[in-house]
Design a protein around this nucleic acid. Structure first.
Lengths: 343, 343
DNA sequence: GGAGGAGGTGTGAGCGTTAACTTGGCGATA
DNA sequence: TATCGCCAAGTTAACGCTCACACCTCCTCC
């Protein structure tokens, strides 16, 4: 008959429905929902009961519209299939949730700056309050400075970028530790299987390796360049196996180290008796390689967590701190290293 | 000096600002933005120019409020640090983006049904239009049926759940292939390192293995139970190495196979000469194990993509298809298998 | 040449919430 | 007893967008 209440209305209940049922105004419902003071306990209870009865859910779009806060953070990542990015994402998500934020992710299809730009824009259009960028490529760092003006932004990765708040692992330090350890064992020098040239991690680890060799007065062999994959490590291994003065190799990550181990095995070069190998990351499998891999552990989850803390701090604290958090990696010694063979 | 225009207002431009600048009504701006017909080309151009000049961004919360569409999908995953879930997430994100959706993720802290419930609720409160659940544990499947009434939902994993649309890999088939291959090579039977008992994948692979042995009249050895980690595979390997009638082992995933290889190597049991090993997943590193691992490949990215297609279909097509998409895995033969040793 | 239709645009209402005011009690203070 | 102030509510106005409709101008057709 009338215009309303034509029986069983199927639409979602809204605040007004709750208010009517509880016999209060919608504003009081809002107050209860937001934990505002000055609500009489019995009133609160009536409202809560009505909410439960109707299974009422606040509409987040409406709330966002008026408060201008979406409670959502964005994450831009590159290849979230890799162990590192995946773990960081996981850390970020956990930290975000406990800070009361949702996480919206988007992954990059290519490495260029425009792609990062697009991804951040996309996230921004969706209304995220801040963005964490996991994109440690040289090409994607410079655009960040511009972007950060449009939306609070934190980078996670490597490098000494001054413009953007960032949390990173001391890759150079870790690489130095690994290289130094091998030199201390008595190796004349240490070869290096590096990551892609345009990754900051890659560059920093290479630099750490190089500086340590120089400081020790050791010769600096030619770098074998890989792309983080086991496949590329394998190929680097085949090349290194042809040289016969190789007694120690530092790989920029564990996956390449795995490939290297494979290649050395095929070339009948014993690890660690003839050649020592150190990786980087300490992926969960590293301890089960043949032989178990000595490596430099970095805590990806912690990295993500810290990045999120930084972002939330920037968002909620008034301080627009352009901080740079450094996390120190730690070497884990396993059976893939030893003193050089006497011969 | 009225109430408005006190100089350089810092607030974000809204549709009305664009309209004023272009000399049209806000509705025309909306039409241009949404590609509505019946807008004269030069009007459109003026509007577009105004948008660019002001760097106007539509407010998604406002749009969502009125259209009741958030353009956002939720993903619930368990341990997105693992290669499988991470790859699926990646596939889902890519597919979602090309279908015009954002992706909001949340990961489970524990396996129980209540935890899944909470995660989905959380996502729903945020206003997602649908949810993909990557949670192939037995404990989390039953709650899904109830949940699916409140929001469109698709599961990805395993099992023959009838209540919820799902996309899964034929785990039983893959396990059967692997087991059959080993039997065909002449092995008397095949041992099995299984995954956690409460995972559907685990259960289905174990069942495929068992059925194949039975069908071939082969004895069914006791199952070694692991937890997907290389560590647990290693421990299972130590146990199996003590038995001396073991000539073939099928592992429920590649990581456990890695641990197994390690244990067998330490026990001086040669693979494949004394013992053949097959894994499951074909992670990128499997080809570089020592020896390279024969395994059953499943395309996680494809899995995620298909799950998303299913969800979007349910969302946009009128058909509430309670489909069940099956993807067939494929065996990849490498050097970790061979005929049993004669002795 | 007036009716009808289609293209092109403007007007007003409403989505569901929070923010800012307003209102009405009631006890404490002067 | 009149006044102040605090508590506990209610009322109204945004927030920025889309939808439904009204309107105007041509053009076509009989």
């Amino acid at each position: 008959m009338g215009t309303d209440s034509a029986g069983t209305e199927q639409r979602q209940p809204v605040m007004a429905d709750v208010a009517k049922l509880a016999g209060v105004s919608h504003q009081t419902v809002s107050r209860v929902l937001n934990g505002a003071p000055h609500v009489r306990p019995d009133t609160r209870d009536r409202v809560l009961a009505a909410i439960r009865e109707l299974d009422y859910r606040p509409n987040s779009a409406a709330r966002t519209l008026v408060t201008r806060r979406s409670q959502t953070l964005g994450v831009v990542s590159f290849d979230s299939t890799l162990y590192g990015p995946a773990s960081m994402l996981d850390g970020i998500e956990r930290a975000a949730r406990s800070a009361g934020y949702f996480v919206s992710v988007t992954s990059l299809r290519s490495l260029d700056g425009r792609s990062v730009q697009e991804a951040v824009d996309r996230l921004r259009d969706q209304g995220v309050e801040g963005v964490v960028v996991i994109a440690p490529q040289t090409s994607s760092v410079s655009p960040l400075a511009k972007l950060s003006s449009s939306v609070p932004l934190v980078a996670v990765g490597s490098g000494n970028q001054t413009h953007v708040p960032m949390v990173s692992v001391s890759n150079g330090y870790g690489a130095g530790e690994a290289t130094g350890y091998l030199l201390d064992l008595g190796h004349r020098t240490v070869h290096h299987v590096a990551g892609p040239a345009n990754w900051l991690e890659s560059r920093d680890r290479e630099e750490g390796w190089r500086l340590t060799l120089r400081a020790a007065g050791a010769p600096v062999p030619e770098v074998q360049r890989g792309d983080w994959s086991a496949r590329s490590g394998y190929q680097a291994g085949l090349r290194l196996a042809r040289l016969d003065d190789v007694t120690a190799v530092f790989c920029a990550n564990d996956h390449m180290a795995l490939g290297l181990l494979r290649a050395l095995h095929e070339a009948a070069r014993s690890v660690p008796h003839e050649i020592s190998v150190i990786g980087f990351d300490d992926i969960p499998e590293a301890a089960y390689f043949t032989p178990p891999l000595t490596t430099v552990r970095q805590d990806f989850g912690e990295l993500g967590r810290r990045a999120l803390e930084l972002l939330v701090g920037e968002l909620e604290g008034a301080a627009p701190s352009p901080a740079h958090v450094q996390i120190t990696p730690e070497m884990v010694v396993r059976r893939s290293v030893g003193p050089p063979a006497w011969r």
